[in-house]
Simulated scan of single mutants.
Amino acid sequence: MVKIIIFGQQKGGVGKTTDTCMVSLVSSLVKDKKTLLIDFDLQGNATTFMTKTFQIENIPQTLMFGLEEGDLSKSVLKLTDNLDIIPASYDMRLYSEFLTENFNNSFDRTFYFSKLLEKIKDQYDYIFIDIPPSTDLKVDNAMVACNYLVVVQETQQFSFEGSQRLIFDYVQTLVDDFGDNIPIQVAGVLPALLQQKRPMHQKLVEETVETFGRDNVFNTIIQNHARLEWYPRLGFSFEDYHDKKMVALFSDIFDELEERIEIFETEGDIENYIYQPKYLKEGKLTDLGKEIRLYGFN
């Protein structure tokens, strides 16, 4: 069955859009999975990342068009044989008003996007939704449609606090409001932008483990890589050793996510789980990492 996944955080600037785009690329180009990326942010950062990567100049329709038409398939843009995107633009600012004008109750307003996604989701193995760092009706629409939430936590205090609010307050409120209609499972907290030489960063990782539990924190950590900062500006490239290391890192993130999902779906909860890196270990490519190829990417 399709897995619908959100990389979320209430604090902005933690790299969740880049993470979402990179995992989408790994899912489709490395793992050969049918993948859909949905940009739910009016800033359209995921859209920009992907259109630069695949040199797309014209976007026929945006997500908002599909929402207004009641048919998300009208907004799907094919990037490769395995990767599609539903792009976003500033017209997403109209979505909350659209919902309020067209639906009389909170359930129909909140689950409208989820209802439309049901019609196309079975075409894919993975659907990744990029959301803004907010908690409004637009984000509610995306969140209630997802199966698994990965909480991206930058190793900064405000991000740590944002992770707690996202899990313990926001998600819990959705569950309280809509009960069994909420399919969300927190797949884990993903530490990001760690700088090993800064004691505070390491301390926040330790506090994260203490707060959420070792089993609920990803073993794979996104180190602070300059190359990741360039991709949103120029688009992803696959030209040298450093690019391959980034693909290897997100291949490990993808594999750990898959393993976590498998454990949830077979055992109900994660206990005594430690992911063993396959592609990038201690900052170096493994033999498997050296063999990485991207299929359908020029």
Results as ranks from 00 to 15, higher is better:
211 T>M: 11
212 F>E: 00
213 G>I: 01
214 R>H: 04
215 D>T: 01
216 N>E: 13
216 N>Q: 14
219 N>C: 06
219 N>P: 00
220 T>W: 01
220 T>D: 03
222 I>P: 01
222 I>T: 08
222 I>K: 09
223 Q>D: 14
225 H>E: 13
227 R>C: 03
228 L>N: 03
228 L>C: 02
229 E>M: 15
230 W>R: 10
231 Y>M: 06
232 P>H: 02
233 R>Q: 13
235 G>I: 03
236 F>H: 02
237 S>Q: 15
237 S>E: 15
237 S>M: 13
238 F>E: 06
239 E>V: 12
239 E>R: 14
241 Y>Q: 15
242 H>K: 12
242 H>T: 14
244 K>P: 03
245 K>E: 15
246 M>W: 02
246 M>F: 06
247 V>G: 06
247 V>Q: 07
249 L>K: 03
250 F>C: 04
251 S>G: 12
251 S>A: 15
251 S>E: 14
251 S>D: 11
252 D>A: 09
252 D>Y: 05
252 D>E: 10
254 F>E: 12
256 E>Q: 09
256 E>G: 08
257 L>A: 14
261 I>M: 04
261 I>H: 01
261 I>Y: 02
263 I>F: 14
264 F>Q: 04
264 F>G: 04
265 E>Q: 09
266 T>Q: 08
267 E>Y: 11
267 E>P: 02
267 E>R: 15
267 E>I: 03
268 G>T: 09
268 G>A: 09
268 G>N: 09
272 N>L: 11
273 Y>C: 08
273 Y>P: 03
273 Y>G: 05
274 I>G: 01
274 I>S: 08
274 I>V: 11
275 Y>F: 13
278 K>T: 13
280 L>E: 09
281 K>G: 00
282 E>H: 11
282 E>D: 15
282 E>T: 06
283 G>C: 05
286 T>C: 05
286 T>H: 05
287 D>G: 07
288 L>C: 01
289 G>F: 13
289 G>P: 09
289 G>L: 13
289 G>I: 12
290 K>R: 10
290 K>D: 09
291 E>Y: 06
291 E>K: 14
292 I>H: 03
292 I>S: 05
293 R>Y: 05
293 R>T: 13
293 R>V: 14
294 L>E: 08
295 Y>C: 02
